[in-house]
Design a protein around this nucleic acid. Structure first.
Lengths: 380, 380
DNA sequence: TTGTAAGCGTTATCAT
DNA sequence: ATGATAACGCTTACAA
């Protein structure tokens, strides 16, 4: 760091700081040096309006000489917009979001804007606080995975004319575009796969009931059971928070069920829950897939080398981010009429079969052995 | 979204947009309604200067009635600072950073500032571009893991009086504070552990030579070898990029060495390289730890359930972020004299032993079998 | 204790 | 094609 770290004090001085480092030149300095008006400089910077080649050149030289950088703060202020997009995610430690962030980032940078990343940590208070800050900063637009517990707050964006695109989750009460996953289909695929392998007691570990994805994934699970003629056993449906620690606890609860109720297969409905479940199973000495078949949700970097490699429903995370950002840009460019009905896109997930769900043979065994009790005497 | 999504056009209208939603009230509106001057309103907002309780109350009521939110853009502009801290990381998909981000975030929010997250993707051009944008936005301060390939650019922060704290990596040419890991110690611990288990041909997979962490981890590796009286075999030192795909390639290269050179143990010097290595070993059918012992760098959420669970050198990532942010705040509060020597903190990593490095017995076997060739006839 | 008014750096409107 | 100038919303001397 140079000697010019004095901060506020130094910056207040007009032309040259006492510590000797260059003060930031402004548009007037450039105009003076180039012998033109500030309006002309502004036109050169923004390529707005016509400026003679010769003047353009003079201005550019002056800018270079003064090491001039437009003050974005002044610019934003004047135009009443920040040139920033906010991406509000609900848990930065969830690998699901990292690839999604990239998708958003790539589009946003290409559009010449900047990305402000906000982590709500599934906390409605944090969410509310971010909404305030973002509105105060006249954010151009917002892409968010809502916690679902601060509706009123999120509506403030709408009141201030700030376009919002939801990702991952939906807020049914709010009319806004959304790029979501077809969660019902994903959960159906996962559950049906286990059922097809012969399992009859399939447990599900799922997140908070308030979140739409949890509801939808449970719905897909139930539909698959129904299609296979199985009555869902509510004891096999474990709900909790969507953290690793929640996955551990819910799994332990399922494992402690009596032998004739305990599931032979597990559908863990997101990646953190999957990690938690695998940890709990390992600690309990339950062999996967022989004693418990597992299908998870979300592909992430270590799924292929987890023990055993995980069968998962993979989401097109990058694409979710990309599509959401593109949709937001349409709003910013004024290409969306405000009275249009919101557009909700549902992307298809894909089942990737690996070892954690076992082979058909092992599954059939379990199925045959358990088919009776599941709907039979043990229950009644 | 409400009917007020008209964007630029709508916002230009002074008091009430044609679409009918509230225009944003400004400080003058509040002052008028409360029957005071704007200065008084400002004093109430910022709790600066003295205002009579009664007026305070009137102002607060007016703010509430008008749903007033101070325009941060104007505020930032006026004060020539953005109230934002930037965190520049080199790879958002690297789990190493997620916990670090939290550490920074927690401190920054507590300090009442906002966090701008920038992902350079290890690309010096992206880095340079972000530096420009951040200076243009009068960022208050920066915490960054430099790519190491855009020194000149990073120096611009210093010239503009913007304090910088480095994390993870060091830019030797630049005088700035840094919160780093004691990489030499970490790599030493990892390597020594393998040597103690009896291994004599320990390979290292490491990142780009331009990055200080790579150099330091290699240094720790070499020191451990030296302390055990082993001459490093340059063929066992694989360098490349720090991505999963780099880990795969470097591992394949080591595996293709002739049997009497091929390592019996591997030190993978960061988490992505570890994932790559594990994937390559699995694909090549090499059993861990029996045919290849592995010690990685960086603990992350799935290490305990990877196959087999990984022995790793764990970094205190949250603490790195937290300490860096606290240090930055000292600069912002003017508590650091600019002519002070930069403070470089080195945090200690910790070895967590799991199954991937095998038991002493298996190691000793290999050691005994290989002790001769390693320094013996095979080499000369 | 409160008010008045001068900026901050830029863009946009109007003349020329 | 270029220039003069008035905003933009807020903070902060300074005056009262």
């Amino acid at each position: 760091m140079s000697a010019c770290t004095a901060g506020a004090a130094a910056r207040r001085v007009p032309k040259r700081t006492p510590s000797g480092c260059d003060a930031m030149a402004n548009i007037r300095d450039v105009a003076r040096l180039a012998g033109v008006s500030t309006a002309t400089v502004s036109r050169v910077i923004n390529e707005s309006g016509f400026v003679a080649e010769e003047l353009k050149e003079r201005v550019r030289r002056a800018m270079a000489e003064l090491n001039y950088r437009p003050n974005n703060l002044a610019r934003s202020f004047r135009q009443n917009r920040s040139f920033m997009i906010a991406l509000m995610i609900s848990d930065i430690s969830n690998p699901f979001f990292t690839s999604l962030v990239r998708g958003v980032e790539d589009v946003v940078k290409e559009g010449g804007l900047n990305l402000l990343l906000c982590n709500t940590d599934e906390d409605p208070d944090k969410e509310r606080s971010y909404v305030e800050v973002l509105i105060g900063n006249r954010i151009d637009g917002v892409i968010m995975a809502p916690t679902g517990k601060a509706q009123e707050s999120v509506e403030a964006f709408g009141r201030h004319g700030i376009p919002v695109v939801f990702i991952d989750r939906h807020l049914p009460g709010i009319k806004a575009d959304a790029v979501l996953l077809d969660n019902v289909s994903g959960a159906y695929q996962a559950t049906a796969h286990l059922l097809r392998l012969g399992h009859r007691r399939v447990g599900i570990i799922t997140g908070l009931e308030t979140v739409s994805t949890s509801q939808e994934r449970e719905e897909g699970y139930r539909r698959a059971l129904a299609d296979f003629g199985i009555t869902p056993d509510e004891r096999l449906i474990a709900r909790g928070n969507s953290r690793i620690e929640g996955g551990i606890r819910q799994t332990q609860a399922l494992l402690s069920l009596p032998p004739d109720v305990r599931p032979t297969a597990l559908f863990t409905s997101n990646n953190l829950l999957t990690i938690g479940a695998m940890r709990a199973l390992r600690e309990a000495g339950v062999k996967v897939p022989h004693e418990m078949a597992v299908v998870g949700f979300d592909e992430f970097e270590s799924t292929p080398i987890i023990d055993p490699p995980l069968t998962v429903v993979a989401q097109p995370t990058y694409e979710i981010g990309m599509r959401a950002a593109k949709r937001l840009f349409k709003h910013l460019r004024g290409e969306v009429r405000s009275d249009n009905r919101p557009v909700v896109v549902r992307l298809k997930p894909q089942l990737i079969v690996r070892e954690s769900c076992g082979a058909r043979l092992a599954g059939l065994e379990a199925g045959v052995r358990d088919a009776g009790p599941a709907v039979g005497p043990g229950e009644r």
